[in-house]
Simulated assay, not measured.
Amino acid sequence: MTRMSLKGLHRPRLMRHAGSFNPVRIQSMHHQSGRHIRLQLEPGRTLHDALVEPLLTLGVTSASTTILSGYFSHLEYCVAPPDPSGNAVIAYSRPIDAGAGFMVFGNATLGKDMQNQPLVHCHATLCTEVGTAKGGHILPKASIVGPAPISVLVTAIDGFELRQAFDEETNIPLLKPYKES
């Protein structure tokens, strides 16, 4: 590539974590099997409740999901720009109201928060009420499914669970694999 063809392109940001270095950056576990479930998110419910409640009835407390496209009567999201304090690489922005929006595609992870309650962490590409394409972290407890059901492909995590825990390298809470000894 010539210098001219690179004009207008942004360089990736260099990310240095503020905490102590962990040589095992990606923590993983696996299990011999996992259930696959197709779920319909019920209109009028928050994304959190529409995912968590039907999965809990099936005994699923940790999962990886793919949210296929669909309309939300209300969507809120945030982005994760660099943390101005320097305490972590990122700091979530204040909630951004997308209005009645369309989720183009999303991935949500189900686990447990630090109080052992269901936690949904969702990244998505969306189209706001005014037609602007955006992306970020969907706020599951503030985003309302509707007017029609939305299909979700679920891979249940069996044999271990995902739990939120403070990560000393990133200085933020992260979902991590956990198995009782």
Results as ranks from 00 to 15, higher is better:
56 L>Q: 14
67 I>M: 14
39 L>N: 00
100 A>N: 10
42 E>I: 14
35 R>G: 08
80 A>I: 00
88 A>S: 15
65 T>C: 15
72 F>T: 13
105 F>A: 15
82 P>C: 04
89 V>W: 06
83 D>M: 03
82 P>W: 00
55 L>H: 03
93 S>G: 04
103 M>Q: 12
102 F>Q: 07
96 I>T: 09
37 I>H: 07
97 D>R: 08
84 P>L: 12
85 S>F: 04
34 G>R: 07
32 Q>T: 11
75 L>D: 00
75 L>A: 09
40 Q>F: 05
55 L>N: 03
59 G>S: 12
46 T>K: 05
82 P>L: 08
76 E>G: 00
66 T>M: 12
63 A>V: 05
90 I>S: 10
66 T>K: 10
31 H>M: 07
44 G>L: 11
81 P>N: 08
92 Y>N: 09
59 G>P: 00
64 S>D: 11
53 E>K: 13
34 G>E: 03
78 C>I: 04
48 H>V: 08
86 G>D: 05
104 V>C: 12
99 G>I: 12
52 V>C: 11
50 A>Q: 02
54 P>M: 13
66 T>W: 07
66 T>N: 08
73 S>P: 02
96 I>K: 08
84 P>W: 03
36 H>E: 15
51 L>D: 02
91 A>W: 05
88 A>I: 04
56 L>K: 12
43 P>V: 10
59 G>D: 13
84 P>K: 06
86 G>S: 10
36 H>Y: 13
82 P>Q: 07
61 T>M: 11
64 S>A: 13
77 Y>Q: 07
105 F>N: 15
73 S>N: 06
92 Y>C: 07
68 L>Y: 11
33 S>R: 14
60 V>S: 00
83 D>C: 11
58 L>H: 07
55 L>W: 03
74 H>G: 03
53 E>M: 10
67 I>E: 00
54 P>F: 11
88 A>K: 07
56 L>D: 04
45 R>V: 08
36 H>A: 14
93 S>P: 05
103 M>I: 15
50 A>W: 01
98 A>G: 15
47 L>N: 01
90 I>V: 11
65 T>S: 11
83 D>A: 06
94 R>P: 00
84 P>D: 06
52 V>W: 01
36 H>G: 09
79 V>N: 10
40 Q>H: 14
39 L>V: 04
51 L>Y: 09
99 G>D: 10
37 I>P: 01
88 A>R: 08
47 L>Y: 01
39 L>K: 01
71 Y>D: 03
